[in-house]
Amino acid sequence: VLIADETGDIKKGTKTAGVQRQYTGTAGRIENAQVSVHLSYGSRRGRTLIDAEFYLGRNWAGTTAEHERRCAEQGVPPERASAVATKPELARR
C-alpha cells in the first residue's frame, strides 16, 4: 500500500524554505511552520519512506523578484518555486 501523508515542523524564523504561517497538525492550529508531504510504502513485511517534498505556499512560490531572491537564498530550484503545488499534487509526483 502507498501512503501519502503530511507533517509539519514548527519553526521560529522565516528564512527556512517553506516556512510560513499555516495550519499544522503537529500544533493543531495555525503556526509558523514548515510542512512536507511524505510518500511511504507499507506491507505485512515492513514499511519504508519513498520520498518527501516540502510544501511551498504563496509566501514562497511565485515569479516576482522577491520570491526568486528568497528561493535562491535557500536553494529552492526556480522550476519548483514558480507556482504553488497542492499537497495532493506533491504526493502524485
Rank of each mutant, 00 (worst) to 15 (best):
V37S: 01
E73D: 12
L49C: 09
G75P: 02
G42Q: 02
Y41R: 05
T26M: 05
H38F: 11
T48W: 03
A33Q: 05
A33G: 09
P78E: 15
V19R: 02
K12P: 04
A85Q: 08
A81Q: 08
R93N: 10
T24A: 09
L49R: 03
I10N: 01
A91T: 02
T7P: 01
Y55W: 12
T64R: 01
E31Q: 03
A52K: 13
E89F: 00
G8K: 02
R47F: 12
L90V: 03
L56P: 01
Y41T: 05
R45I: 14
E89G: 01
W60H: 04
A27T: 08
D5T: 02
Y55C: 11
Q34P: 06
T63E: 15
T16R: 04
V35M: 09
Q22R: 11
V76T: 06
A81E: 05
Q74W: 01
S36C: 15
R45W: 13
E31M: 05
G25L: 01
A72K: 11
D9H: 09
C71N: 13
G42V: 06
F54M: 14
R69H: 12
S36P: 13
I10T: 10
T7M: 07
A72G: 07
Q20R: 03
A33C: 15
Q74R: 06
F54P: 15
V35R: 03
E73Q: 09
E53N: 04
R93A: 14
I30P: 06
T48P: 00
L39N: 00
G18V: 13
K15M: 14
E89W: 01
A81D: 07
A4D: 05
L90C: 01
A65V: 09
R47W: 08
Y23H: 12
T14G: 07
V37E: 01
D9I: 14
L90P: 00
N59M: 11
R93T: 13
R69Q: 14
R58G: 14
A33V: 11
N59Q: 14
L49K: 04
A65D: 14
G25T: 03
R47Y: 07
T24W: 03
G46H: 00
G57Q: 04
A83P: 01
R44A: 14
T24K: 01
V1I: 13
V76C: 06
S82D: 05
K87M: 11
K12R: 12
A52I: 12
H38S: 10
A72H: 05
E53K: 05
V37H: 00
V1Y: 06
R58D: 15
T86I: 13
L39I: 13
K11C: 06
A72N: 07
L49E: 06
I50D: 04
R92M: 07
R44C: 10
E68G: 00
K12D: 04
V19T: 08
F54Y: 12
A27N: 08
G57Y: 05
L2Y: 11
L39Q: 02
C71T: 07
R92Q: 10
Q74E: 13
R47D: 05
A91R: 00
D9P: 02
E53I: 06
T26H: 08
D51M: 09
